[in-house]
């Protein structure tokens, strides 16, 4: 049916890279999300403003523009800064690093909203109880507020992951050897573009399917302590 003419391994290598860059980007996104949520809750006006600007701007600009801006813009910024103080250097950004940081930065904005909602949904009494038995603020956060919020955030973070992993296909446009880029290489070598792009799409579909199953299980696991409403 789908004759890959010996290019199957190239696609599998690409798949591996896609998953790797996806996981790195997701970790980055959760990190940015925590920072953003912290900014939104912070009493500081400046942190508030920064977090709100972050989510507003990132959600209003296409991923591709931000990716290109980072990939081409950051090296140029460094070069221009160096030139200003009299050095001539040439900087090239690694597409893997540029890719996962940018995708992480973008989806961090979506994580911010998810995490903000999760922290808001932790009942007040939980934190009060923890403080009342003498936990320090940090300990109470670590043992009570954070685990409870994470349980609430899991479905939302799962959704972000499903969108994020598909967005990693964009990194092929800055020449990272991930699934779509390798499919393109194979398509050009064999002149059978449909075969390879279709196979790549099925691999993305497989990632989606596996993620759905894993997430369902994770959600069930995280809800162990909650009685289901009948």
């Amino acid at each position: 049916m789908l004759d890959l003419q010996g290019y199957g391994w190239l696609l599998l290598q690409g798949l591996q890279m896609t998953i790797l860059v996806g996981i790195c980007a997701m970790m980055m996104a959760v990190l940015f999300g925590l920072l953003g949520a912290w900014g939104k809750f912070s009493p500081s006006k400046l942190a508030n403003w920064a977090a709100n600007t972050y989510t507003t701007v990132v959600r209003g600009v296409p991923e591709l523009i931000l990716l290109l801006l980072v990939y081409y813009g950051v090296p140029k910024l460094i070069q221009d800064a160096a030139a200003a103080i009299g050095y001539e250097i040439r900087v090239d950004l690694n597409p893997f690093v540029a890719g996962f940081i940018t995708i992480g930065f973008i989806y961090g904005a979506f994580c911010t909203e998810v995490l903000r909602g999760a922290f808001l949904s932790v009942p007040r009494g939980q934190m009060e109880a923890a403080r009342a038995i003498g936990m320090s603020k940090i300990l109470a956060f670590r043992r009570v507020q954070f685990p409870l919020a994470m349980r609430m955030a899991l479905p939302g973070l799962g959704n972000v992951w499903m969108v994020l992993i598909k967005a990693t296909a964009l990194i092929s446009l800055i020449q990272l050897d991930e699934l779509l880029r390798n499919a393109k290489v194979a398509a050009q070598a064999t002149r059978e573009p449909f075969t390879f792009y279709f196979t790549a799409s099925l691999m993305f579909l497989a990632i989606t399917l596996v993620s759905m199953i894993v997430l369902k299980r994770a959600e069930r696991w995280s809800r162990k302590g909650i009685r289901e409403a009948v």
């Binding site: 598909k166 964009l170 499919a183 393109k184 449909f194 792009y197 579909l205 399917l209």
Partner: peptide, 17 residues
């Protein structure tokens, strides 16, 4: 379940096959 970019490539480049 698949990225839009893959779908675009599939239709535009893939139709050539």
């Amino acid at each position: 379940g698949t990225p839009l970019l893959v779908q675009l490539f599939l239709v535009y480049f893939g139709s050539g096959q």
